[in-house]
Design a protein around this nucleic acid. Structure first.
Lengths: 352, 352
DNA sequence: CTGAAAGCGCTTACAG
DNA sequence: CTGAAAGCGCTTACAG
């Protein structure tokens, strides 16, 4: 039951198999040079002793660790945010299949000031890093453009720096959602934003929203745009402010689901019905969106798949199979009840 | 901008500082034996070259990595579950403050079959492991009882095995919630469970629920107990089944918030008002609970704090400062609107 | 097909 | 107060 205190090393295996250290190492690495018979013999004693090669020693000799870092911005309880969680799950699952371990990192101030984004690579702790949720204040990413340290933005991109990324088609998604509201006859549509001007994809959503609105002949109105800080609390406050400034609003486009859920909560408190009095559409399609009351119409982002793809490409980057990855994933509107287009559950929404 | 390809090593620092390797290593480890002057000199060239010690080499020499693994069960997109996410955030934040890195692991079949729960330690990949969400099928934990490999159950415990854990007082929490419902006059109270018989804390909730009900003179009724698999979908199905079997139900106690939210959704679809027709209480107090409509009355678990404490104790375990940790955290009911005790927002609930 | 030796980049007794 | 040397546990040319 209780294994002996000292772990076995390659030396033990060599001795007990009557071969050299090199030979053991070579079979450990599936080198075809070793004959089947000695290979089998070595494998047997490895099995018998339950030997596990020390990964630190291998990493030191190999100069890589088969470990990837997932980096997220410093937010309150970042790992409890479903948006990040879905992507992390995708990355983890793919990494696991490819034999990679996942290390968690938060872009705290010290992380940036101490250049830990370099240290992680240089201390040979990770082979690559995936950044979810980067914003314009994370200027250090500019030091990761040259490709010497495999780095990627996940579901985000940069116009300023030439970085690797996998991102969904935010503009098209936002355009679809806005068009949907317009086609439903709404003319006074409020916009609850978050991260606009700081997060490229937030900017994209707002831009596409404006474009869709104006394409429909509805003039832009700065009064209809408020900030909700991407949180439920923020969404509540934003909805309140929006209604105060524009009592005639009949629809709200929220830049993410968390704010949309907050907005619905506030609308409810104000005695306004969703969607009869005010229609609401969100963005992301987090799992909670479908269990909200009413079910939230929102732009579905394939978060988990984005995570998987990003991880896969990252490993290709590490192995030098590709030198640049800049991929855009399709994205579509999921119609539920909060926009009023669907009257009965189970009935497909009219695309008009 | 672009650093030279080869990273500096301790040897470079030694040469450029005109000292030996040992000396550099000793200042790296803050050894007081080194004089202030040479120490300063070495530090200067470390600074100048931007030298970073290779962590793999240190780990090899030290025989530990200052890395902790967080283990979760194999669930669909486990890291997107807010329950886990809150705890992970707590562990991460504390680990970060203590200079530890966090590695993610899922208890997949291969993880168990290949004894990766041993490998992780024996390959010197992690110094300790924290398991969130263990259930009775994870029998491998029995091999982690002897303390040779620092291991801990987070917000869970075992009656069968003598393991380290930090857990909240589930029984008392459940008892409070059940009592609350009883005092509100409910006599036909449905119970939506999940993991009962597999997860010790789930069993505890059910036991405490039954106890509270029976203490109040209400006889037990197996018909009132259904399984909702701990998910929103499951909660919806469970609520439906519960109402079908017991049209006279006036309250529902859900073993977690996710199912409670699903139950409310289903009640809504069935045209039943919460709390007027059916009161609902949940368990966990995930962030979403307060933004649900109506706000969910639920037992607040200090998930983030539990994660922090578990991490802190784990590090003490690693350093041999403690040899056993079995701590229970207090827990209390948070009253919102879904139980009907609170009529207006902002008004404190009567404890009766 | 196999082995001896140098090397990966540190740490830590042991001398001095 | 500082240095030479052995060691942590592997891998990988280089010989043979």
């Amino acid at each position: 039951m209780n294994e002996s205190k000292r772990r076995y090393t390659i030396k033990d295996i060599a001795e007990q198999s009557s071969v050299s250290l090199s030979t053991v190492s070579l079979v450990l690495n599936d080198n075809p040079r070793i004959s089947q018979t000695t290979r089998a013999r070595v494998l047997k004693t490895i099995e018998r002793l339950g030997y596990q090669p020390n990964r630190m020693a291998r990493a030191l000799a190999w100069r890589h660790t088969r470990t990837l870092a997932i980096l997220v911005p410093q937010l309150r309880h970042a790992f409890a945010d479903v948006y990040f969680g879905e992507i992390v799950s995708g990355i983890y699952d793919r990494a696991s299949g490819l034999g990679y371990k996942i290390l968690l990192e938060v872009a705290r101030n010290e992380f940036i000031d101490n250049k830990e984004y370099h240290q992680l690579y240089d201390q040979k702790f990770v082979d690559g890093m995936l950044f979810i949720g980067a914003n314009s204040r994370h200027r250090f990413v500019s030091e990761l453009t040259d490709g010497s340290r495999p780095f990627m933005l996940v579901n985000n991109y940069s116009k300023e720096f030439d970085l690797n990324y996998v991102v969904s088609n935010y503009r098209y998604g936002a355009w679809q959602a806005a068009q949907h509201l317009v086609r439903l006859g709404h003319k006074r549509i409020g916009f609850i934003g978050g991260g606009v001007g700081e997060i490229q994809t937030s900017q994209d959503i707002l831009d596409a929203f404006k474009e869709a609105i104006e394409d429909s002949g509805i003039g832009p109105d700065p009064n209809l745009i408020v900030d909700g800080w991407l949180t439920e609390e923020g969404g509540m406050k934003a909805a309140e402010e929006l209604l105060r400034r524009n009592p005639d609003v009949t629809a709200i486009f929220s830049l993410n689901d968390r704010m949309a859920l907050g907005a619905i909560k506030k609308l409810n408190e104000l005695g306004l019905r969703v969607p009869q009095d005010v229609a609401v559409v969100g963005f992301d399609d987090i799992p909670q969106a479908s269990f909200a009351i009413p079910g939230l119409t929102t732009v579905h982002q394939p978060l988990y798949e984005i995570g998987k793809l990003a991880c896969e490409r990252m490993v290709e980057l590490i192995h030098g199979k590709v030198s640049r990855v800049q991929e855009v994933m399709p994205i579509y509107l999921t119609v539920r009840e909060s926009c009023g287009a669907r009257l009965k559950d189970g009935v497909a929404a009219p695309t008009i």
